[in-house]
Design a protein around this nucleic acid. Structure first.
Lengths: 346, 346
DNA sequence: TTGCTTTGTTGGATCGATCTAACGGCTCCC
DNA sequence: GGGAGCCGTTAGATCGATCCAACAAAGCAA
């Protein structure tokens, strides 16, 4: 809540009253002009507008907020802004909000639920109109319902906490992983491993489940499955365990970062990804096309998801009691060279 | 009218007055408790605090802002959030602001001065206490001075617009480029090219200048210099012109993204970076260590710069009339394998 | 006892906007 | 002629906090 120190106030600035006096009208009229009300006479409007321009008036949205109970402000809580996928997501959100005249408070939780709680309550203090949340690993699933009960619209992005009346924009991770697995199966692979399925969040569970189901559907045994956090380091380390015993010929990875780690680990052991072992990632971050061998991966379009989420939140703010929406974006398989097939160019 | 048993969908939000009544004190006292004033009796304080907890009160910072003329809010205007370097910068800023109880409005200008102007005026309307600005390409240099005159503290990050009373946190790009060039010269290179110097912003000018000066200092002729935007695509395309005529043996690049493009372009022509041509980047983004060959580059520590900038802005907000500070962070050369030398492990 | 500080608390004014109800002046229509 | 309706405008109340001057109670000195 409160901080201990108070900061020197800024110099007094112009108010509606000053404009009103200058233009010879009332404060209320100036207010109507600023808000583009149609109920103001043309002549009055232009007189007021030139007064505004002449005096260099700056609208005080903070003051307006107090009375109108709406801030044109949303809270953007991101689990890891330094992950390029979430940076894209953020850029997409920013675009949409900009067009709608909204501004976002940014909070980077760095996957810490404590930071996340602190940020959310700070944003409630700032009276944001809504919240865009990509929940940190280990988030208490009840918070979305809590916020909903307190009248604060929330749109979950990607990870789904399981509340029933929750707005959500996500990706059909199962479909994505299924496409990737089927591609490997079509190429003739029989032993297909999975790296990075150890997390409890929904994207992780979905991908691992789709991996198992698809293999089962084609009569193949699953495994080995190596749990690890999605970092390059852990991905590289996972390769050690991957090569123990009956060696797989292909690896599906939880995400691209993970896949980079695996390719790195393979290279360090003298194996060439795409030739000695097929590798497929997930997310299609910018580096995927750049890497050599270029990474076959599943594209989910971070920017697009951000745009969808921002639009959904704006709709929800306008209609708080509308039916919850769950938007699921279909992913695409982007075939490059890390899986040993010839790249297609769609 | 008016006798129905209507259940409020959203309970009216609590105010200081409600807490005051519940705790049997005045509004002013509750306010003092919230702001940790020492002038409240211990017993009163704890009584008020338990009332706050019991009723689930949420402090309304927006209302407080109006009276106190300070919002504990800053504007963060970033030129391209999807560039991993700026994502790191943002994460560093977020850390510092969090600890100080500030929140940032995020704006991603995507290098558009028009978007930037719009964002800045929107933030002025929201009465931010200060601005962290990494100016978009082509920003009108006068805006920093304008904001200063209007009483809004601004800290420039990285690019320097040239105003005299401007706070600025940057990197000694000249030193960084000098270190890189001297490293290549020590390795025996005589024809050293430069790719990506075409932009007008200060980081670009500084790097290109240091390149020329260092070569001159060692009696070497500069060139070829290929102008291009810092994208992978343009970097790759630049390789074509690089190989025309008298072929250089080493390339200094404007930044890592550019260097990745160059390496890609070399590989596409059957040349191996680090063996057939030395390549050095700039920024040390996360992918630099990951790429093969791993990229030799100059590290400037985006996160650290963000932290310094945020701290400087907080100082400036506390003391608006203090002397302007220019903080220059020294970069380090990170030797990996793309320049053909054995990596050191410092 | 009186006079002076210190400590803790308070009611009322205030920040700069929006909201509400009402106003004067006008037209329309029976 | 007068009631109804519309239009552009307005004064005053209001949002939920902070600031300020005043004040009661307690402590201390003379």
């Amino acid at each position: 809540m409160g901080r201990d120190i108070s900061i020197d106030p800024m110099p007094r600035s112009l108010t509606l009253k000053d404009i009103a006096r200058h233009a010879g009208v009332s404060r209320a009229t100036v207010s109507l002009v600023i808000r583009n009300s149609p109920r103001v006479a043309k002549e009055t409007r232009s007189r007021v507008q030139s007064s505004i321009a002449a005096l260099g008036y700056v609208y005080d949205r903070a003051a307006a907020n107090l009375r109108s109970r709406t801030t044109h402000t949303i809270g953007l809580v991101v689990c890891e802004i330094t992950n390029p996928f979430y940076a894209e997501l953020t850029a997409g959100i920013d675009e949409v909000l900009d067009r709608a005249g909204f501004v976002a408070f940014l909070a980077n939780t760095a996957e810490s639920p404590e930071r996340q709680d602190r940020f959310i309550s700070r944003m409630r203090e700032h009276k944001v109109d809504g919240l865009l949340l990509s929940p940190a690993e280990g988030t208490d699933p009840s918070i979305v319902d809590d916020m909903h009960r307190l009248g604060l619209p929330v749109v979950e992005m990607l990870r789904h906490l399981g509340g029933k009346n929750a707005d959500h924009v996500g990706v059909d991770f199962r479909l994505g992983m299924t496409l990737a697995a089927e591609h490997l199966i079509r190429l003739g692979h029989k032993r297909i491993a999975f790296v990075g399925g150890g997390r409890r969040a929904s994207p992780s569970r979905d991908r691992a489940a789709a991996y198992r189901q698809t293999l089962a559907r084609y009569g193949l045994a699953a495994g080995p499955v190596i749990d690890c956090m999605p970092t390059r380091e852990e991905g590289a380390r996972a390769v050690g365990r991957l090569l123990e015993g009956d060696r797989p010929t292909a690896v599906l990875c939880y995400n691209d970062i993970c896949a980079f780690g695996v390719m790195l680990g393979l290279a360090d052991r003298g194996l060439t990804p795409g030739r000695d072992m097929a590798v497929i990632g997930f997310d299609n971050i910018a580096e995927a096309a750049l890497y050599r061998p270029a990474l076959t991966t599943v594209a989910v379009g971070g920017r697009l998801i951000g745009q969808e989420a921002a639009n959904l939140l704006l709709r929800r703010i306008k209609a708080p009691d509308g039916a919850p929406e769950m938007i699921v974006m279909p992913p695409k398989l982007i075939v490059r060279s890390s899986c040993g097939a010839r790249p297609n160019h769609h």
